[in-house]
Lab assay of single mutants.
Amino acid sequence: MKVIFLKDVKGKGKKGEIKNVADGYARNFLFKQGLAIEATPANLKALE
Rank of each mutant, 00 (worst) to 15 (best):
M1I: 15
K2E: 11
K2R: 14
K2P: 08
K2H: 08
K2L: 10
V3L: 04
V3Q: 00
V3D: 00
V3G: 00
I4Q: 02
I4N: 01
F5H: 01
L6G: 01
K7P: 00
K7W: 10
D8T: 11
D8E: 09
V9G: 01
G11D: 08
G11W: 08
G11E: 05
K12N: 11
K12V: 15
G13K: 01
K14P: 01
K14D: 06
K14E: 10
K15G: 04
K15N: 04
K15L: 08
G16N: 07
G16L: 07
E17K: 03
E17V: 04
E17A: 05
I18N: 01
I18E: 04
K19P: 00
K19E: 04
K19M: 13
N20R: 09
V21N: 00
A22M: 10
A22H: 12
A22V: 09
A22K: 12
D23T: 13
D23Y: 15
D23R: 13
D23H: 13
G24T: 13
G24D: 14
Y25H: 06
Y25M: 05
Y25W: 08
Y25A: 05
A26Y: 14
A26P: 01
R27A: 10
R27M: 12
R27D: 05
N28R: 10
N28G: 09
F29V: 14
L30F: 02
F31I: 13
F31S: 02
F31Y: 07
F31L: 13
F31N: 01
K32V: 14
K32G: 07
K32I: 14
Q33T: 11
Q33M: 15
G34H: 06
L35S: 04
A36F: 01
A36S: 02
A36R: 00
I37F: 03
E38L: 07
A39V: 05
A39T: 02
T40P: 03
P41F: 08
P41E: 14
P41L: 13
A42R: 07
A42P: 07
A42K: 08
A42E: 15
N43K: 04
N43P: 03
L44K: 04
L44G: 03
K45N: 13
K45P: 05
K45A: 12
A46L: 13
L47I: 11
L47Y: 14
L47V: 09
L47K: 05
E48F: 12
E48D: 12
